[in-house]
Write a protein that binds this DNA or RNA. Structure first.
Lengths: 152, 152
DNA sequence: GTAGGTGCAAACCCTTTGCAGAGAG
DNA sequence: CTCTCTGCAAAGGGTTTGCACCTAC
């Protein structure tokens, strides 16, 4: 997904194309992975130091509403953003070393079906963060690790 | 689970029993369901107006670390707390009407096994929030619903 | 020309922290 | 008596908002 396509999509849906929006989309597309609002601002500032915080937050809110980006809350107090991708994928986040493992979206298919069948609930399982312990951090796991800020 | 048991557990693990801690545990036990720190404070204040915010936050952090309570981030900017229960359960949160449906922990068992087998990842799936649309809110679903603050 | 966006600064809001004093064991 | 916990007030930190100005169309 190139940022020009997303820009076209934006305009098609009746939103204006501003330099700021272009820069924001460009940065999110380039930086493959998750970026916080702060990181996005920092990257834009390298080329254009005048980018404004509010504009970034407002644009991210818009892009998320249009499902062009996925906001994800990894439970550390700040939200990260990523270009909306197909097929979906999820993230295993180690609560000890903070390592992130990407997981194919298919693992959630059975659960999604179950929730739909049994609870008539249409789950947003397209971008999910699962907390736990990765392979390396498991042996020394047991004695009550320090609580991380906010886990889901 | 009665709050006196939890108090005993606290002392057994070398922590002091203070009136504040007793009140906090009592409120969390009574209020069946999820309470935010603010709600906990409000409820205590009805009987004892002098309860202190910091004490509550610090106690909640302690209780979470000892796995006596489960913190859950429903993505609205504040964490809720609930007595740790067996068997586990999860929550389906409607992103439109905010309704919460409780779901048996067993639905995650296959996923947990898969993550362990394929990724050697020990997932914390004991208390999970899944966002989506409930039965009632589904028909009118499609055209880009307003973005909720922070979803996982 | 006119919505819709941007920039700025201040407000928000939940949560955390430093420190002095209190009280559980 | 000691060490943990509490109370207070202030700071933190990501995010949001009000308002005047600007600019994409």
């Amino acid at each position: 997904m190139h940022h020009t396509e997303l820009l076209a999509d934006l305009r098609q849906r009746g939103h204006r194309l501003t330099p700021q929006r272009e820069m924001i989309l460009n940065v999110i597309c380039e930086g493959n992975g998750h970026l916080t609002a702060d990181e996005i601002i920092a990257r834009i500032r390298k080329q254009y130091p005048y980018i404004n915080k509010s504009a970034v937050y407002r644009t991210l809110e818009l892009l998320a509403r249009l499902c062009l980006v996925n906001p994800t809350d990894f439970g550390d107090g700040k939200v990260t953003y990523e270009i909306h991708r197909h097929p979906h994928h999820h993230h295993l986040v180690c609560r000890q070393c903070r390592k992130m493992i990407e997981v194919d979206g298919a693992v959630f298919a059975p659960l999604e079906k179950l929730l739909r069948d049994e609870y008539a609930f249409a789950a947003d399982l397209d971008h999910f963060a699962i907390f736990g312990l990765c392979r390396k951090c498991q042996p020394a796991s047991s004695p009550a690790p320090t609580l991380r800020k906010r886990r889901a």
